[in-house]
């Protein structure tokens, strides 16, 4: 009994985030880990959903086809609304990011699964890719005029240098907030669920209370999973719009 109880108490909410090599061996660049596996699953599920659904090419879409078309329409709408028709050039890029994050978040909700997007290494790369690409687009499109993005022309003279510093900082903070927002949301949600799960064993009969809370939290986590993917994509569109049209 005692060992069982201590075993229950032993649940570490962070254990689920461990990145472990699947086939043993030292961790290196090409090591296949559980993170690799789940990235592959994410890509496979997206491919199945979009390719399986578009097989028929019927004028009346099948259910699966409707899902694919709805997601396409949703992201397309988002891109054109925020970044305009010019932004459609970068649509596949944003669609890739959105689908990858959405399905990572959602598949991470499966028991015993691994949430790829709960790792700062992943979200950091995603955010940096956006940051670098968008900055490059800005410079390619506007040349050195893109520096004007940081120079507040409408502000009173003496304030301009100060504001420029603030603008620069806020610009370079973008990838940090962009990545941490997503990663921390995923991390916190899953950790909280695990902590509540730990209470269940410790409370015995009263374990129904944390179980009820977990049911609610799980629903909430699904909401967060979708919203964070949406937020990431919409911010990408906003940054892209800044680079395309400046403001």
């Amino acid at each position: 009994m005692a060992t069982g109880a201590s075993g229950e108490m032993h649940i570490d909410p962070m254990e689920q985030f461990l990145v472990k090599p699947l086939f043993g061996g030292e961790m290196s660049l090409f090591t296949i880990t559980n993170a690799t596996l789940w990235m592959a699953i994410v890509v496979a599920v997206i491919a199945l959903l979009l390719l399986g659904g578009s097989n028929g090419r019927g004028h009346v879409p099948t259910r699966l086809q409707s899902v694919g078309e709805l997601m396409y329409g949703f992201v397309r709408q988002m891109v054109t609304d925020i970044a305009g028709e010019e932004g459609m050039k970068y649509f596949p890029y944003i669609f890739t990011l959105f689908l990858f994050i959405l399905f990572s978040n959602l598949l991470g909700m499966l028991p015993y699964s691994f949430t790829v997007t709960s790792h700062i290494a992943v979200t950091g790369v995603l955010a940096l890719m956006v940051f670098v690409t968008v900055t490059a687009i800005g410079f390619i499109k506007h040349g050195t005029h893109f520096f004007g993005f940081f120079w507040p022309k409408d502000a009173p003279g003496p304030l301009r240098p100060v504001l420029m510093v603030i603008e620069l900082i806020s610009y370079f903070v973008r990838p940090i907030s962009h990545s941490i927002r997503l990663g921390a949301n995923m991390l916190a949600g899953h950790a909280v669920l695990k902590v509540f799960a730990g209470f269940v064993g410790a409370l015995g009969v009263f374990g129904v209370v944390p179980i009820a809370a977990m049911v609610g939290l799980t629903a909430f986590e699904f909401l967060v999973a979708a919203i964070q993917a949406y937020v990431f994509a919409i911010l990408t569109c906003v940054y892209l719009n800044d680079a395309l049209h400046m403001h």
Partner: peptide, 17 residues
């Protein structure tokens, strides 16, 4: 490893899409 496989996954997804 995470970053490498992420880039592989994203590239694969990008081309599939």
């Amino acid at each position: 490893s995470q970053i490498f496989w992420l880039l592989v996954a994203l590239t694969a997804l990008y081309f599939i899409l």
